[in-house]
Nucleic acid binder design. Structure first.
Length: 423
DNA sequence: TCTGGGGTCCTAGGACCC
DNA sequence: TCTGGGGTCCTAGGACCC
């Protein structure tokens, strides 16, 4: 029995989520902006038809968007995460094994399913069920490897005649599609590799599939070699149902305005560290290494630049917000310089351990401090309850550096006072 | 004036050891 | 002028993904 993977991908996900609760926007172009309302990260079909490109800085096309009556939204991550969870739970009810690959995509293992029902029928029914239960439209691509399933999904999106479902298990069909796809559309081939491959005469996905894997490995990498094999229907990437534990946690943001005062940076670093510590506890890990980074605006070459990124090792791995914040602030004090206009800062945690397993020296108590653990549990409980916020004084009350979200929609599904009311 | 955030994997090169 | 070889570990940087 040969493997069959499906890739289910939500269409224009963020824009679709915004439209779910705004039926008045049906037919109107929608764009969603990145944090700080920086650039375009999602577009509805109508917005794509207007020629609006992904990743364009908002300020460059703001006038055009107004002229075209485009609805503009700041990222509402709470909303998207909630809708995503609903879509994923439906997929998990209908497929034996599911890998949630990103907020809007999942791989399914459909091996053996084609003995019971045709893949086209299965794909169409998944689409219909998700749409009926969530209002979200998805496309389904099916093939013997993940890389081919990705391409099949892409075809399902691009060609309306497919009705959103493409079964690419037939080798002849694979060849036909690969010949139509530029190599840059292949999963794992980014802009740099595309350029190099094009220069070598490899233009289409079919050209890459026809390349010698050994040669590709020598000239490029083992990763691209695997891609070549996957394009030939040899499955090298397996379905990963268990989310692997994180190797690092990063919390960083660009500021709403440039920061020039130490007080503001102190608040920001405290906040980011607290958030990172919260994520760490969710992962049930402790961290031994913490680093911070500050950045001036690298796009503005006329300004003096300063981008320190100091790190420190903790004596014992910890998940205690207070210890991590104290370490971060020590690093900040040492690297802070007045006279720069800072644009962004962040905190990174690495070198993770399982709580209580660290081999400590004679003078430290291994296994963590039970009082600290209890305190952190209470902190997380209150902050996740929706009833209030408890934070360290260092995080500040002014928060005048916080990011801009001028076009934020309500938290329709995750905050009581924002639930839509039908009159 | 205005250019996201959070991840992964691989490789090369330096430090260090015997 | 000569001044080994091989292994491990760590870090930085580059590439990719959504």
């Amino acid at each position: 029995m040969s493997a069959v993977f499906a890739l289910v991908d939500c269409n224009n996900f963020y824009a679709s989520c915004e439209r779910l609760f705004r039926p008045d926007l049906i037919g109107r172009p929608i764009v969603v902006l990145s944090n700080n309302d920086g650039c375009i990260v999602a577009r509805s079909a109508e917005a794509k038809a207007l020629g609006i490109k992904m990743g364009v800085p908002f300020h460059q096309i703001e006038r055009y968007l107004r002229q075209q009556n485009v609805a503009v939204f700041s990222s509402n991550y709470a909303l998207y995460a909630d809708i995503s969870a609903r879509v994923m739970s439906i997929l998990e009810q209908h497929a034996p094994r599911v890998e949630i690959y990103s907020i809007d995509e999942a791989f399914l293992d459909l091996t053996g399913v084609d003995a019971i029902v045709s893949l086209d029928t299965f794909g169409a029914s998944i689409r219909q069920i998700v749409r009926q239960h969530t209002g979200i439209h998805v496309c389904v691509g099916m093939a013997p490897s993940k890389t081919l399933a990705k391409l099949a999904n892409h075809a399902a999106k691009v060609y309306p005649a497919t009705r959103g479902v493409v079964d690419l298990t037939d080798p002849v069909r694979q060849q036909r599609l690969l010949a139509l796809m530029p190599v840059s559309e292949v999963w794992g081939v980014g802009p740099r590799l595309s350029k190099r491959l094009n220069a070598e005469g490899i233009q289409t996905a079919l050209d890459l599939a026809a390349a010698n894997p050994k040669t590709i490995r020598q000239q490029y990498s083992v990763v691209l070699e695997r891609t070549v094999r996957e394009l030939n229907g040899e499955s090298c990437l397996s379905l990963e149902e268990m989310t692997p534990t994180k190797q690092q946690i990063i919390c960083s943001r660009s500021f709403g305005q440039r920061i020039t005062e130490y007080r503001q940076m102190h608040e920001a670093i405290c906040s980011y560290t607290s958030r990172a510590a919260e994520k760490l506890r969710q992962e049930r890990r402790t961290a031994r290494r913490l680093s911070i980074f500050l950045r001036t605006n690298r796009f503005n070459t006329a300004e003096p630049q300063y981008m320190p990124a100091p790190g420190a090792e903790l004596p014992i791995p910890t998940d205690d917000t207070r210890e991590l914040v104290a370490t971060a602030i020590k690093l900040l004090r040492a690297c802070w310089k007045d006279g720069y206009r800072y644009m962004k800062a962040g905190v990174m945690l690495t070198d993770f351990h399982q709580p209580g397993t660290f081999q400590s020296d004679l003078f430290n108590t291994a296994g963590g401090n039970p009082r600290s653990q209890a305190l952190m549990e209470v902190l997380d409980h209150i902050n996740q309850s929706g009833h209030g916020q408890v934070f360290l004084a260092g995080q500040g009350m002014q928060r005048d550096w916080n990011m801009q979200r001028r076009y934020l929609s309500p938290a329709y599904t995750t905050r009581w006072q924002d639930i839509p009311v039908v009159r």
